[in-house]
Amino acid sequence: MSTSPHVAVLTGGMSLEREVSLRSGTRIATALTEGGLAVERIDVDRDLVARLGAGGYDLAVLALHGAAGEDGTVQSVLDLLGLPFSGSDALASALAWNKPIAQGVYAAAGVRVPDRIVLSQLAFRELGASAVVDRVAETLGLPLVVKPSTGGSSLGLSVVTTAAELPAAIVAALSYAEAALIERFVPGTEVAVTVLDGRALPAVEIVPKGDRYDFAARYTAGRTDFHVPARLDEAAAAACEAAALAAGAAAGARHLYRADLIVDADGAPWLLEIDTCPGMTETSLAPMAAEAAGVAFPDLCRTLVDLAVRDRAAA
């Protein structure tokens, strides 16, 4: 390979998070181009394999969010093509993508995760699960967070405070995934820990100005206050870091990933999920954390390229 690799930035696609992905992809491609690399942005579609085969690329940087991009699908195809890529491998991606399974793995690794129940469409259709919906609130208590078992950007997420709201919230979550993940609501400080090549970056504290960190709060500049580093005491900050690293290791995540946590009143971190292809937009958390650690956005992108190249042999 020459000193200036030819990079394909994979972005867009058919995912429900297409718009966010396009924003991430454009920003990464611009930064790498300004850094002197030969970069092409590819909007992922049926021609992807043909384009990658014909394009003479040395590696791919993934700016894909949502199904196909983040769930191991693209990663498997890239493996077959022999093209190195940034971010977690197919297995780790698939694992982290399925939140209920991933939470089980994190819990087995000793990481604290909220009590939860998973109800799939199948459970309602074939097992008559509606008869046990009442037990969800009895078992977990209220309030509850209801979200799709896969996917990001808070799409399809609701917080319910009464059992009566639960069925509608489950239906809304099932609009986005085959199963609804229902978690005990953990009150506390919302924190994101980004891990770059095995090193935890300063935690980012998220304080939405509205009542929660929903889609609008995530992607409207000015709707959320961020504090970097998070205003945590040393022990809590260290516990967050440890949880992020332990969960990432358990999933086999690599290069760049983001762990979302809640720190409760006792300073204990609860891990909600790991995002193996974190957003890279102007309001995204991973670039903020990198910036706070002295890694400017262009350098963060360049690091992704270098990591993909470095791990080529390992793949």
């Binding site: 995912s15 998070e17 995530r218 409207t220």
Partner: peptide, 14 residues
């Protein structure tokens, strides 16, 4: 504010 629906429309023209 950013809108979920507006974001979903980004896929619609495919």
């Amino acid at each position: 504010a950013a809108s979920e629906i507006r974001a979903l429309f980004a896929v619609v023209n495919r």
